[in-house]
């Protein structure tokens, strides 16, 4: 279907190019506009930072990224992102199974709630978590009396990251589950497989690449989150500072080389993400 449409388009492109020069000029103008816009908005700015980072060779880049503060920020980022990815993956697969394989009242509402984080400003996410888990709220006070500090500490940062990345795994898995259907699962069940066996042997292999796609998206979002984490972390240098917070703090303190180096590292991660999602993206 997609292939035949593509062939059709390509055939027509040739047809138009050879037979309609006026159309050809319009095509050239559109193409130039699109490419120029993307060049000045995306390519040139990102390219400039990479060029400035490596302008004096690889040495300063590595030096800036191996300072104790940078290394600490790396560690905090990794810990928070890994927790967030694990939680969102477990919830994402469970919620997707629930939405596709089960029938219950309020299903549309649940779907809408899962998508809600996309519409919320990261700063509002931070504020919302402070209001529930902050020291001066009943819940936050209770948790703190048990010795669990949420806000200005790792658990709060994990919650904030889980919040902003919540829909990504669910929305990657749902269409594939939908398309797979449940006939094979039913067959396995009839043949005496337990629920866990059915999930591990039938469902999981079926959704593997969609799940990987969702996990990559979720990981990228988690590594790159700034606003929500800025609010709940308290931005304590060498304590709750993630890599994105490190970029901002170094830049405000006129340490451009460190800010540029960390930005370049994050940009490289983004490019890797892009290539991975390109490979994993479900073909339609």
């Amino acid at each position: 279907m997609a292939d035949s449409a593509k062939n059709n388009v390509e055939h027509d492109v040739e047809h138009d190019v050879t037979h309609d020069t006026k159309h050809g000029v319009a095509r050239y103008v559109l193409r130039t506009t699109a490419v120029a816009y993307l060049f000045f908005l995306l390519v040139l700015p990102v390219g400039l930072i990479v060029w400035r980072t490596f302008g004096d060779g690889l040495g300063p880049f590595l030096e800036a990224l191996t300072s104790p503060s940078a290394l600490h920020a790396f560690r905090v980022t990794l810990v928070v992102a890994l927790w967030a990815v694990v939680l969102n993956t477990v919830f994402g697969v469970g919620a997707a199974l629930l939405l596709v394989r089960h029938d219950f009242p309020g299903k549309r509402l649940l779907g809408a709630f899962i998508d809600l984080p996309m519409a919320v400003s990261p700063v509002v996410v931070g504020l919302a978590l402070i209001l529930l888990y902050g020291r001066f709220s009943p819940v936050g006070g209770l948790l703190e009396s048990w010795g669990l500090q949420v806000i200005f500490s790792t658990p709060g940062m994990v919650l904030a990251t889980v919040f902003v990345a919540l829909p990504l795994v669910v929305r990657s898995v749902v269409p594939v589950l939908e398309e797979l259907g449940d006939e094979q699962e039913q067959a396995a069940h009839t043949l005496g497989a337990s629920r866990l066996q059915t999930f591990l042997r039938i469902t999981l292999p079926g959704i593997r690449s969609a799940l990987a796609y969702g996990v990559v998206l979720c990981l990228a979002r988690s590594l790159g989150e700034y606003g929500a984490v800025a609010v709940v972390s308290g931005r304590l240098v060498d304590q709750t500072q993630t890599l994105t917070l490190f970029v901002e703090e170094r830049f405000q303190n006129f340490d451009q080389p460190a800010a540029f180096a960390a930005s370049t590292a994050l940009a490289l991660l983004a490019v890797v993400t892009l290539l991975l999602t390109r490979l994993l993206r479900p073909k339609d």
Binding site: R52, S263, V271, L275
Partner: peptide, 25 residues
């Protein structure tokens, strides 16, 4: 390549987006 680039703003952390724009503009 152009097609892949379109998703860059989704993958790039927003603080980095701000920084790269500030460097050029």
């Amino acid at each position: 390549i152009v097609d892949t680039l379109i998703d860059l703003p989704f993958a790039l952390p927003t603080i980095v987006a701000g920084l790269v724009l500030l460097a050029l503009y």
